[in-house]
Design a protein around this nucleic acid. Structure first.
Lengths: 191, 191
DNA sequence: GGGAGCATGTAACGGGTTACATGATTGG
DNA sequence: CCAATCATGTAACCCGTTACATGCTCCC
């Protein structure tokens, strides 16, 4: 046998969403798909992205199939139950490997507002300005939301880093808003 | 007939890449797929994203099928030719509609470096710091590149807005680098 | 002669989305 | 009682990627 030496742990090759979901599970045990979705919307969404609900259930099933997570059915009510997941020890190993051995994939930015500026010779300037102002306001709101979630994470020591990521997000959206203000000025200059 | 009134122009429902490629064609006539790819890599890639080469050829064929662009074969050499594209008047209308009537789709950010910070309880801190420093340096390089391309766009009046988008990009990557420096400090604090 | 750049295309694949479907529970 | 929330899942679809294939031309 050319490989597969004892003790050699090869990381499973998972899509990004899978790692993200596994990451969420690394914070807390016994989360349902629904829980995972809420977590994703309230933290991941600010600096990464929020997978769709159906995708999350798919990833959860994949993680279980690969034995990186296990699930059990929790009877919440007489006629109602939910399936909750937790990482296995293999899952723990995998996530450590992901953090320490896998190259982070390159940052992705898709800012369609800047795309509009780039192609501004095709459209109306007034309108573009209005659109950019709206976008700036949305960024400020987003910053406020990130800040609120960051404060929420302060309470528990285990969300320490999650909170820092959210503080980073607040700054990101604040900077973005400032950059749009600069852009508005810059466009003004250009008659 | 319930719709289709004369003069009523309904925008074709195109995927994002299609609009981006059409946008590139709006700058200059007679671009080959290869040209489009280079343009995308040197401007779009900084604030939007660079579609793969094969995708560009696909989009170009789609645009022609929808009569938003036409192509002709240009004989460059005895035994070599290339197919070059240009927007039609319908294409011009469509791109104006895109700029002025279509909601820009929400900004997408996928920063896997911050994802690592968020999940930092699973990995080694030293390593994370090193990774972040590398990322900061890459951001600075990216800023420099954007600035260089922005200067390149100054020459021609028709790339005016394209140049502004690149100036914005320079700022983006500069801000990003500064934010990572802040993050490095912030993580230090947290022992 | 050979490597870099020009130039275009096909095929397989899959990640992820939207839309749809279903039904229980809780609180006003 | 009704809306919102909890909770899970299926099916269709396609965008976009990677990998592969091909061959010319230019310049050292």
């Amino acid at each position: 046998m050319s490989h597969g030496v004892m003790g050699e742990k090869s990381l499973p090759d998972l899509p990004a969403t899978s790692w993200a979901v596994l990451g969420i599970l690394s914070f807390e045990a016994d989360l349902s798909g629904y829980d995972v979705k809420r977590w994703a919307d309230q933290s991941l969404a600010f600096f990464y992205w929020a997978p769709s609900q159906s995708q999350i259930y798919t990833e959860l099933r994949r993680l279980e199939r690969l034995e990186l997570a296990t699930s059990r059915v929790e009877q919440t009510h007489a006629a109602k139950s939910r399936r909750v997941y937790r990482v296995t020890s293999q899952g723990q190993d995998a996530i450590r490997g992901w953090a320490d051995e896998l190259e982070p994939d390159p940052m992705v930015l898709k800012n369609s507002h800047i795309l509009r500026v780039w192609a501004a010779h095709n459209g109306d300037m007034e309108r573009l300005h209005g659109e950019l102002r709206t976008y700036r306001d949305a960024a400020l709101e987003r910053a406020a939301k990130a800040a609120a979630h960051a404060r929420g994470a302060e309470r528990d020591a285990s969300w320490r880093f999650s909170g820092i990521a959210l503080e980073w997000s607040e700054r990101f959206y604040l900077d973005e808003a400032a950059r749009i203000d600069w852009l508005l000025d810059r466009l003004q200059q250009e008659q």
